Simulated scan of single mutants.
Amino acid sequence: MIRCSLSVAMAAVCMVLAGCSAAHRVDVPSIRLMEAAGYPVLSSTADASKQLTVQTTVALGAVSSADCSIVGKVFSLRPPTAGTAQWTMTSPSVQGWQVADTASQLRTEWSAFVAQLAERRRAGCFRAGWSAAPLQQTIADAIPVPADEALVLRYGFSGEGVADLQPGMVLQVERSVLGERKGRRELQSLQADYEVIAAGEGVRLKQVRAETLHMKERPDEIFALDKLTQSATHLRLLLQNLTPGTSAQRPPILLMGKEDAALQHASSGVEAQGCNVAKSVAGVQCLTFHEAVSLLVSVKVNRKPVTFALGTTLGVALESQGIDPATATLRRSLTSGRFATVVFPQTRDGVSHIVLQGGDEIAGTKLSK
């Protein structure tokens, strides 16, 4: 990293070359944690009206001649007028999310909306090169989102054991082994971490860390997962879970393919019966892990990269890093590549409502010991 000089001239050069001031990357409106009737919602608009819905414009590209609109009970999307790229998204407002019936339908309706979004993408409705994941994330970045459901809208992750791998996530694969240390045998771990990064119309895995313990055993499931998945553009992880209808634990499974629809088609059968079911679905490969698999997100804390389990709140992260909530700030990386400041009450209660996303940047002062 380039070290900033004390001189004004050198500091200016340093800022251009190294991006010394993260504030200069914040170029979109702030995201605010807003509450109505005690229900926290993240929104980039003031949304002070009493209307239960809000219309948000989202740049998704010029429309084709196909019927590209989506109409749902909770979420709807209308194509732009000729010559523009601004689509109109209708969704609940901050006030609208206080309606119990609306909130209870979020997961079902969002899942249906995302499925239709994928269908419209295959029909050529959106700009070339976009997969369903960045479309979903771009919309989730723009609309009011219940704070405790943010991962559902951004990643489709409901905590029920199935997740489509998307940029910002980190996949950790770990196997416990008996190793030798200082003349004594002890339980150790072979481990590798893989970042999920955007690649073309999908994603790929990039190994960012490996712990081999200097052992000869180098299982491909841990240390060559990027190569095993290199022909796929879409990856769906089924975390370890109970096999439906039994008390047996199903091991973690990774589905690989070039179309998200094929993975969804194979998913329910594989979840119940294992990888043998995937053989009957064209274009789908299946890998059963013999290791523990964890899903993480990569963030920066005072400019240093740190990983946390998917679902970790800002409050838990601050506590683990010994940072005073009263001094904490958060910048959120958006799908557009821009950053937005997240504004929230700098209290223990305020930070407990924000769930971390991949690419978040946290800063704050360490608590004195």
Rank of each mutant, 00 (worst) to 15 (best):
G124L: 09
S91W: 01
Q136I: 08
I143V: 01
A150W: 03
R25D: 12
F75V: 06
A115K: 15
V63R: 01
T108A: 00
T53D: 05
P79F: 12
V26Y: 03
A150Y: 10
A48V: 08
S91D: 10
F126T: 05
Y39P: 13
Q86N: 11
T102I: 15
K50N: 14
E160C: 09
P29N: 03
Q86E: 09
V94I: 04
T90L: 01
Q137K: 11
V94W: 00
Q95K: 13
A150N: 06
R121D: 05
D47T: 02
R107A: 15
A133R: 09
G61K: 14
G96W: 04
T88W: 00
G124H: 06
A66C: 07
A140W: 08
V162E: 09
A132F: 15
E149N: 02
Q51P: 05
V152R: 10
R121Y: 01
W130M: 15
A123R: 11
V71P: 01
T102S: 11
R25M: 04
S111D: 07
L33F: 06
G38D: 04
P134G: 07
P144Q: 02
P134K: 05
A132T: 15
W130Y: 13
Q116P: 04
A46H: 10
R154C: 13
S44I: 09
V114K: 12
P144V: 02
K73E: 10
R32N: 10
